[in-house]
Amino acid sequence: MKTITVDLGARTYPILIEAGLLARAADHLAPLARGRMMAIVTDENLAPHLATLQGALTAAGVESEAIVLTPGEGSKSWATLEALCDRLLDLGIERGDHVIALGGGVIGDLVGFACAILKRGCKFVQIPTSLLAQVDSSVGGKTAINTRAGKNLIGAFHQPAMVLIDPAVLDTLPARELRAGYAEVVKYGLIDDFAFFEWCEANGAALLAGDLALREHAIAHAVAAKARIVAADEHETNGTRALLNLGHTFGHALEAETGFSQALIHGEGVAAGCALAFGFSAAQGLCAGQDAARVAAHWHSVGLPDGLASARIDASGATLVEHMRHDKKMAAGTLPFLLARGIGQTYLDKTVDLGDVERFLDAQPR
Rank of each mutant, 00 (worst) to 15 (best):
A220Q: 13
T237C: 09
K187A: 03
I229W: 00
H235F: 13
A183V: 03
A220W: 07
H235W: 08
D233I: 00
D193T: 12
Y188A: 02
D193V: 05
A227S: 11
N238Y: 03
E234Q: 10
W199F: 14
A220G: 11
E236Q: 04
H235M: 15
L190P: 09
G181I: 00
I191R: 03
I229E: 01
V185Q: 05
A213M: 07
G204D: 11
G204H: 07
I229V: 15
A209Y: 06
F197A: 10
H235V: 12
A225F: 14
K187Q: 06
A180M: 08
A213H: 10
G204W: 04
A224D: 14
G189R: 03
K226S: 06
A180W: 02
A183P: 10
C200L: 03
D193E: 13
N203S: 13
V186K: 03
I219T: 09
N238L: 03
K226Q: 08
G204M: 08
A220P: 12
A224V: 06
L207C: 15
G189D: 08
L212C: 09
E234M: 02
D193C: 13
A224M: 05
H221N: 12
A220H: 10
E184T: 08
A232D: 13
Y188Q: 09
L190Y: 08
N203K: 13
D193S: 14
A231H: 01
L207Y: 03
E236F: 00
R215G: 11
A183E: 07
E198C: 12
V185R: 04
L207A: 15
A232C: 04
D193Y: 08
